[in-house]
Amino acid sequence: MSALRRRLGIWAASAALILAGGFVWLAATDAPQQFTQRIIQSKGIGQPFNLVDHNGNPITEKAFEGSPTAVFFGFTHCPEVCPTTLYEMAAWLKTLGPDGRPIKAFFITVDPERDTPEIMKSYVSNFTDRIVGITGKPDDIANLAKSWHVYWKKIPLENGDYTMDHTASVFLVDAKGNFKSTIAFRENTETAIAKLRKLVSPTS
């Protein structure tokens, strides 16, 4: 009797341990940090995508290949971070002049419901002709943002409208598709330009 009870006890204990181990493991692999790590260690950032550029043309991950690339996620109903960043990106590229010509720059909306290609174009083109706006189906945008480890969240407002929380850094990807670094919101201009220079010519 007591032997049976002991055996049952061990059964229960081992089952509990296996279960607990599984949960710990799941929780750990699910952590967002793990995702960042995977991105940084992976050869290419993100996964294949099918979206629409601000001219209404299809755009895929191929657009990020072969040239150093700067990518910013945002939305047009954004009072400060997005216009400031677009304004600064335009200024960096202007300052770099011919040195920055190889850089491709993209503004990807996290608010595809409101940001149609037309709206993206009329918005982005007010800052520069060097940045291409990207939008698409909400699910496709969500997948892309996830694969770039971009945080975004819709926040309802009292008037029925909404705003978006989102990662405000500019992602820098080299010509081989390797994630290199980020330029933070309001990062010092010289640092930002130095990062872009390094992106274009890693050895110099």
Partner: peptide, 30 residues
């Protein structure tokens, strides 16, 4: 099972933490 749980938790929790710090440091500075 205990061993798996322990090593699994270690391997997956330690490294991302280090990476996450490195990743967000530059951002945080400014």
């Amino acid at each position: 099972a205990n061993l798996i749980a322990a090593t699994g938790a270690h391997a997956t929790l330690e490294t991302p933490r280090a990476t996450a710090n490195g990743y967000s440091k530059a951002v945080f500075d400014v």
